[in-house]
Amino acid sequence: MTEIVHTPYTPWPERKCADPRVANQAQYVDGLTEILSYQAPMQAVELFQAYGKAAGLLKIAASVRRRFEYALNKAEKSGDVVIVREKDPEAKSDDDSVQWIVRLPHQPPVIVRDLGTRGFAEIPMSELAAVVLDIRSWDELAGREDIYRAVLEHYGLQKLTALVKRRLNAVLEQYF
């Protein structure tokens, strides 16, 4: 197989953000859009965690997550961000923000990147689908095991875990 062309993952150079428990909309938008300028498209939950960590939080409580979701929805309505809701097997419900893939309006909806500092569960399903499409374009007869191996190789992973298999199977069912 040919090597998948990708963009290096660029993590946000963390800086102090306003406390999300008391931040106003302008403070949320400032911090969230700065993170997105480096890391988008990305899952909303990953975005909340990056912001929360920069604000000194160790964990995102449910009440804080709801504040983030509210701020992000307002930012979407004002045109500051774009949110695409993808079906993700890790989501607990249809309205779970794990399924929100967030980017700035000028950014492309999908960027194939290396894993970087992300965990496999944080890769947008649309990005995984683009990787699988690249694999299938080289070998349209590639079976699931071939696809699993090629995706693992692309992201520099060694082990086919239940998580990896579940997400890739969902991609194959949704997109192919």
Rank of each mutant, 00 (worst) to 15 (best):
I147E: 05
Y28S: 11
Q43W: 05
E3T: 10
R21K: 14
E122M: 08
G116C: 03
L163V: 13
T33A: 08
D146T: 13
K59V: 04
T33N: 12
C17K: 08
Y38G: 06
P8A: 04
Q158H: 06
A40Q: 06
Q43L: 14
P13V: 15
L168A: 04
A62T: 15
T10I: 11
E76N: 10
V151S: 01
S126Q: 11
V82S: 08
G156C: 04
P11K: 12
A26Q: 14
C17M: 12
L36T: 01
H106F: 14
A170I: 03
E90T: 15
E140K: 15
F48C: 13
G56E: 07
H106C: 05
E34S: 07
P89W: 02
H154A: 11
K159I: 13
F68N: 03
K53W: 09
L160H: 07
V64A: 05
Q158F: 06
V22C: 07
I135F: 00
A75F: 01
K53Q: 07
V29L: 09
H106W: 15
W12H: 14
R66F: 11
P89A: 05
M42W: 12
P8Y: 02
A26S: 10
L72C: 06
R103M: 08
W138N: 12
D88S: 13
W12F: 15
